[in-house]
């Protein structure tokens, strides 16, 4: 094609293409360059490696509770009495109804992440369950929220019984056992 047959140059069109490509490419570059910095704020590998904890159930008498750390979070292990089990099995909780059987592998042992689902405080042990000192959420002996601002029941960590007196908290190779 001869040069003089070319259509006249549309300056507006050229500007548009030039500006768009420049800003899109530059924008993508800036966004990509931001990623390492944003990602650096996520948990580092040493933090992630605290994934599982072992806990011994030895010496926790019925009615007693033990707190063990898992991923830096407190995990409550409650040895429930027969009375507590029966009263929990007959109710469905409160704001976030769930059967007690769905929350335990062995009804004697209740294993919970001890962090209030409202704003992350550690609820204090009371006879009837737990009470969060920060904003007054109340949980029963199945870790189900009864009243207060907490939206959900206390979280259940993945765990499994390695023997009748020991559990491993956290995701292991095998999926957690469902009772």
């Amino acid at each position: 094609m001869a040069d003089d047959e070319n259509p006249p140059i549309d300056e507006n069109r050229r500007d548009f293409i030039l500006n768009t490509t420049t800003s899109v490419v530059a924008g993508a570059g800036i966004a990509t360059a931001c990623w390492p910095f944003i990602s650096s704020m996520n948990p580092s590998s040493d933090v992630l490696s605290k994934a599982t904890s072992e806990a011994s159930l030895k010496g926790i008498e019925p009615g007693e509770m033990k707190t063990v750390p898992w991923q830096g979070k407190p995990v409550f292990i409650l040895h429930r009495t027969k009375k507590q089990i029966t009263s929990m099995e007959t109710s469905d909780g409160g704001k976030d109804p769930q059967a007690d059987a769905e929350r335990v592998q062995n009804p004697d042992w209740l294993v919970l992440v001890g962090i209030c689902t409202h704003l992350g405080c550690v609820p204090a042990r009371k006879k009837e369950g737990w009470f969060c000192p920060c904003h007054g959420s109340v949980y029963d002996n199945s870790g189900r929220v009864l009243t207060g601002p907490a939206p959900r029941n206390l979280e259940l960590p993945p765990y499994e019984f390695v023997s009748s007196e020991k559990i491993i908290i956290g995701k292991t190779e095998k999926p957690p056992i469902k009772s």
């Binding site: 707190t67 750390p69 830096g72 979070k73 407190p74 689902t117 409202h118 704003l119 405080c121 550690v122 609820p123 204090a124 969060c132 000192p133 920060c134 904003h135 007054g136 207060g148 601002p149 907490a150 939206p151």
Partner: peptide, 27 residues
């Protein structure tokens, strides 16, 4: 990290906002 104090309060200058946060029974 294993134990929350029995009664946690923010510094005085956040108290009114904290009260508003607690006033709504929903996260």
């Amino acid at each position: 990290p294993m134990q929350t104090p029995a009664h946690i309060v923010p510094e005085w200058y956040f108290l009114p906002f904290y009260a508003i946060l607690r006033a709504v029974p929903d996260l």
